[in-house]
Nucleic acid binder design. Sequence first.
DNA 1: GTGAAAGCGCTAACAG
DNA 2: CTGTTAGCGCTTTCAC
Lengths: 336, 336
Amino acid sequence: MEGKATIQDVARQAGVSIATVSRVINGQGGVRPKTEARIVQAIEELAYIRNAAARTMKSKATKTIGVVVPDISNPFFPLVMSGIEEKAREQGYIAFLSGTKESTVVEQNVLKSLIERGVDGVILTTADENGQHLTQFIEQDIPLVAVDRSLPHLEVDHVLVDNRKGAYQAIQRLILQGHERIAIICGPLSTTPGRDRLIGYKEALHDFHLSFNEAYVIEGDFSEQSGYDAVGQLYVLEEPPTAIFTCNNLMTTGCLKALDNLQWKLGRDVSVIGFDDIDLATFVQPKLTVVSRPMKALGELAFQLLHERIEMKQAIGKRSYQLSPELIIRESCMLK
Amino acid sequence: MEGKATIQDVARQAGVSIATVSRVINGQGGVRPKTEARIVQAIEELAYIRNAAARTMKSKATKTIGVVVPDISNPFFPLVMSGIEEKAREQGYIAFLSGTKESTVVEQNVLKSLIERGVDGVILTTADENGQHLTQFIEQDIPLVAVDRSLPHLEVDHVLVDNRKGAYQAIQRLILQGHERIAIICGPLSTTPGRDRLIGYKEALHDFHLSFNEAYVIEGDFSEQSGYDAVGQLYVLEEPPTAIFTCNNLMTTGCLKALDNLQWKLGRDVSVIGFDDIDLATFVQPKLTVVSRPMKALGELAFQLLHERIEMKQAIGKRSYQLSPELIIRESCMLK
DNA sequence: GTGAAAGCGCTAACAG
DNA sequence: CTGTTAGCGCTTTCAC
């Protein structure tokens, strides 16, 4: 019997009606033990596996969710994904994973593809926070939760990291060590993380009465290359910074490579604090001080919120969570 | 109109029959332009999105695949996944991603879950190469391709890396530099990569007339911790090795941490070659020599093979590919 | 306890 | 060119 036993086949084999088979498949009880045994046996003999598509047509739910991120290669997202996937599996869900390469168009297509397949909900780190491309999606009112990047114009749940606070702590640390010329390599200002980390930077400067200098703000694009290039720009300044705050894992990597290349000595000529506690952090000499955020927890929480939305159909207000990052002090910042 | 416009709704709105709507949805032509225009408009007005479940019931195909890996957190797999996902999307497929945490049972459940949902094919890095737990799956004869770990007893396509060769090159390099006490921290011998890299190690030793010493073989489990622990064992040997070959990214990381901890100086007291070119490699001092494998290409090829299987229904023999790893020589091996 | 039958939304003959 | 209709595999009343 090849890969297509249906509930019909099982019913025939067990000598009962499909209704009865359906009952035992779904554990609804009300079936005589002997009958049930026959059915169970038939199921095994035929290696019957139920067909979710057919089931979906009646019950609506697919027990399937979509996870859409800008870049699968960036280690940050798989970590978030691992949190999502684990919780999802526990609840009998299974997750699609798609990368958009930061393209709004791809994001739109992926989302459409997901809707077609009837996902019960979606966890999204959008490529475009203004979210206009999502209207079509919203109309279908499928639960959606935004992770890491916000969707300010949409009534959806958010799971973010307190970026402002993380940046503030980093800069504060630097200031308290006596630095006054502090640069920030921040992410795209069109993204929440990009913007908020810059805000935290400014707030710290302001609170400690340090002046703000445009030249010390370089806007990268979260890529390693942009981190690398930014350091180059900083290095040739008349008054180069004595400390640099890099705003994500990849840019930190790029920054460190550039430093190495320029012989601009980490922890001696220049202090550095990175965002995200990457493997690398404990390997460079001196070890890197970083702002660490709980990636897996981010994913777990995101799934939990989504799951709640899926279960209780009634409308509840938009919910926002900001997980706290933690400053892990190591050796890459010297007293000035 | 809320999220459930059907082909019926569209037909009514456009004043035609569902068959005609179906025709334009599927671009089959043979519809008068004016009619088509009316339908297209109706589709937009209703924000109609076709229902894959219903469609699947007729056509069978879901344009959906499953990707099952042992550990989502291990950066290796997301990289492979990115290759898969990109190619898949190009072909209109979308991929489920699941981690099994190296558990055969979880793998089985995940696979079942995937079959229920009608995936057209699966790309699998199995937790158990003997593959007995896969029989149920095979019966459904859904195309399957094994990546990174083989399934010797099954008639499925394989996409592997030439592990033997990669290890051989590494050990050869070490030997040519004069090392005679070379240790290997290998993966579980129950896995192809674990076994083959050890074989390459032995072959090189043999070819260069070096004796094989049990004590220099430590079997890890591909985790960072096991790499760390292995170094501890090696360090206390009466005659510690002068070179270590670590067999995957995580164990390399663990090894480097242990070295650092023991003050066993990389490149001076001990030479190291790692498997996989991780970020870390270029940051430790001295920079790490590694065997690098093309992860993304692995994923791309895997999807291509799977896709071919899905398309041409006729049976073709088992195909095996071994992509070549590359020895990237940096500074972590000194002349002996 | 169990079965018959009505769809779920869509595709694909088959008619007209 | 367009409409009618028969299922795809399953869940779910409603009878018996």
